[in-house]
Amino acid sequence: MLGALRHLNQLGASTAAVSASLCKQARTKATASFGMGSVCGTSARAPCRAGSARTSPPCGGGQARSATTSSAESKAGAKAGGEGAKSAFDGVDLNKAAGAAEAAAEGTEKAGGGTSIFAMALLGLCGTAGVVGYAFEGKDVHKMADKAEGQAPEPLVSLARSYATWREGMEDNVRQFSEPSSEKLLPDLPPPAAQYMRTLVLDLDETLVHSDWRRERGWRTFKRPGVEEFLRHMSQFYEIVVYTGQLSTYGEPIMERLDPDRYVPYRLYRDATLYEDGKHLRDLKRLNRDLKRVLYVTSDAKNCTSAPNAIEIKPWRMEADDTTLLDLMPFLEMIVRSQLPDVRQVVESYRGTDIPSEFRARTAEMKKNLRQKSGGKRFFGSGPR
């Protein structure tokens, strides 16, 4: 279809060019015949020579005589120039001729305008096709063709269907690079574990490690303080998944050094992400897990498809005294021990706070309330006397 549209566009452009050329030739011919160009007041057989007695007066510095010169003035000029020199305007009604020339030029312009309208219509068709190509998917074009069946010309409907089929093929090719490699990124859990298992998804860069470049040594990757203890302890409560937008050639060597004991059974890289608006998003919806039991720990909560499941922590920039991961462990452990039906409700209640600090404060308040409630009660009495 694009080839056909280009052909039609070129046809419109060439038609407009031919029309413009014809218009220019008509105007040139009219001006040459009726003295609008650089024509002297003498015959073509008697060239204009300065000082000659057989010629009419000089051309006035190369300027043409006006087309509105009267017939009497032309005859007087010819008589003054001698019997052998006749004016090119003898026997011609210049007013009438000028009117005819204007009418011819006007007709040519109208003809050219018609061609321009045709060309603009083709350009509009091409523009419309371009908008349809970007604004509608292949399935949308198929629906349009179905609605136009019997109303629009059959060749046009067939062309639309052919374009829709081609477009769907292109969309399939794009999906191979923009969507996750599988609809189920993790294998199914066995039936007993599916009822209670919690899944902890961890981002890699600025969450577990930080990569730094210096001129004298190049790139080096550093592990966050407490990351090994964090993975070892959390593996007792969670199914752990590392999910990053980096290529496996970058992430896999890091994970091999960071987790030699395989506390992280699943590692997902760029091919498992959703590419959208220039970002590689962690598509938690395709983890093949119930989102009520999924937590995602990251330094950037905007890089996932399910914000209610995201716990955002401070990005690590190689601070030696950082204790973020260790401070987060009691909170994550409490979620599992409490067997909460939906972890997203807990995350939402901590939204906008420093979770470790807020969790310690709430825990201290809860213990205080329990002591106050139990302070005035006697659990072991002396019995009846």
Rank of each mutant, 00 (worst) to 15 (best):
I335H: 02
L287Q: 00
L22S: 12
T42V: 04
W166E: 13
F89R: 13
P191H: 08
F118G: 01
K79I: 14
L281Q: 05
K79Y: 10
A100C: 05
F230N: 06
D342S: 06
S182I: 03
D93T: 00
L185N: 01
A164D: 04
G99L: 13
N9Q: 08
Y250Q: 14
S338W: 14
E206C: 02
R351C: 00
L325T: 06
G375L: 13
L2P: 09
K279D: 11
A32H: 10
R267F: 11
M234S: 02
L189S: 08
P190S: 14
T199W: 11
P47G: 07
S70V: 03
N303R: 12
A103I: 01
G130Y: 03
E229H: 06
G226W: 01
D277P: 04
R6L: 15
W219V: 15
R175V: 10
R54Q: 13
R262T: 10
R378V: 15
G62A: 12
G60F: 00
R317D: 05
L11W: 09
Y163T: 12
A320D: 13
V201A: 04
T42A: 09
L204V: 03
Q345I: 03
L94E: 05
V346M: 06
S52F: 08
L5D: 07
Q25S: 12
R27Y: 01
P356S: 07
V209R: 00
K24S: 11
V297G: 00
L291W: 01
I313V: 15
N288H: 01
P315I: 02
G99T: 11
G77C: 14
I240G: 08
K143M: 12
G218T: 12
A135P: 07
N303A: 09
G3D: 13
S14M: 14
F89W: 07
K377E: 09
G150K: 02
Y134S: 11
P225D: 06
K368Q: 08
D321K: 10
D146R: 12
G114D: 12
T31G: 09
Y269G: 00
T115S: 14
G84D: 06
G112S: 13
W219A: 10
A307E: 14
P187H: 10
C48G: 02
